[in-house]
Design a protein around this nucleic acid. Structure first.
Lengths: 155, 155
DNA sequence: TACTATAAAGGTCAAAGAAAGTCAAACTAT
DNA sequence: ATAGTTTGACTTTCTTTGACCTTTATAGTA
């Protein structure tokens, strides 16, 4: 393990331990390892992404932070497949199939599904740059991942 | 929670308790927290705004004061105001305030709110055309409108 | 009594500061 | 040669500060 990114990854995973999430300061961490702050972002995008079972959030400005969360997605083949599928853009109809399928698998309730469909409806995502399908994929992916984290937190 | 604005917010909400309103002196509060008086205004505009279900009033001059009130008007009034607000673009923070307030008004459940926040998160809406805030408004508006219709269908 | 000056509030706005994000260029290892 | 890593310049977001402005109450004076 000769590169710093791997060491930072190991450090973070170790610090995370069995916890569901971990709050860190990007600057502090960069300082601790004596690297450019942006390297932390590199580690986050290459190591703490959903393919590896993680999700991140952050806030800028005074008192800013980065949160690293575990998802359970690797334990569900269905979810993994869907998330993968969502790396491509999806149209509204396809997205609705996915949501309905999630409901029948008890991933979402009816009322949750309604909200998701509203969020990804053509009306909600209309924009001048033909980003609709792309945004829809991103949104759905995000919802699925975060929901997964929240579900786990309850247990 | 390492920034002072959050601490002032927490202090005020705690002091407010279950009361309808609270009178404070801007200078005293600024003094107590050792910040510039104008920071109190910052906290008021970012945290005790309409989106979060608050309203403020003040008086200058000798014996001046600031009143923080809960807007406990009808949900429909609030909703109308919010939908109006959403004709302008909103950033993530403000949008979350709206969602949180909707939860405390029993418009959404916690689990629905989580989904909405995921749908409008910066990660979900990242795109190369700086449409983020605009899309967020559209999505939130759409969700609120659709949800409102569904709710009425049940009655 | 009416008028004015002054002090005691609160308001506004822009600049500075404190984080995190992005992206491309340079470097390294396979 | 290619993929993966490291760095740094520039950007965006959120917070904090300070200088200057406006409003209100009150004390002093004609």
């Amino acid at each position: 393990m000769s590169n710093i990114s791997d060491m930072i990854e190991a450090f973070l995973i170790d610090t995370l331990g069995d916890d569901e999430y971990l709050d860190i300061s990007r600057n502090d961490l960069a300082n601790y390892f004596n690297v450019a702050p942006s390297q932390i972002n590199y580690v986050l995008t290459t190591r703490f992404n959903y393919e590896r079972g993680f999700l991140t959030e952050s806030k800028r400005g005074g008192g800013g932070y980065i949160t690293i969360m575990r998802t359970d997605s690797k334990n569900s083949t269905w979810l993994t497949g869907i998330l993968d599928r969502l790396n491509q853009d999806v149209d509204y109809r396809t997205a609705c199939y996915i949501v309905d399928e999630a409901v029948s698998r008890k991933v979402f309730s009816d009322s949750q599904a309604e909200i998701i469909k509203s969020a990804i409806s053509p009306a909600a995502l209309s924009n001048p740059f033909k980003l609709e399908n792309h945004l829809r994929s991103q949104i759905l992916q995000r919802i699925l991942l975060k929901h997964n984290v929240k579900q786990r937190e309850k247990d």
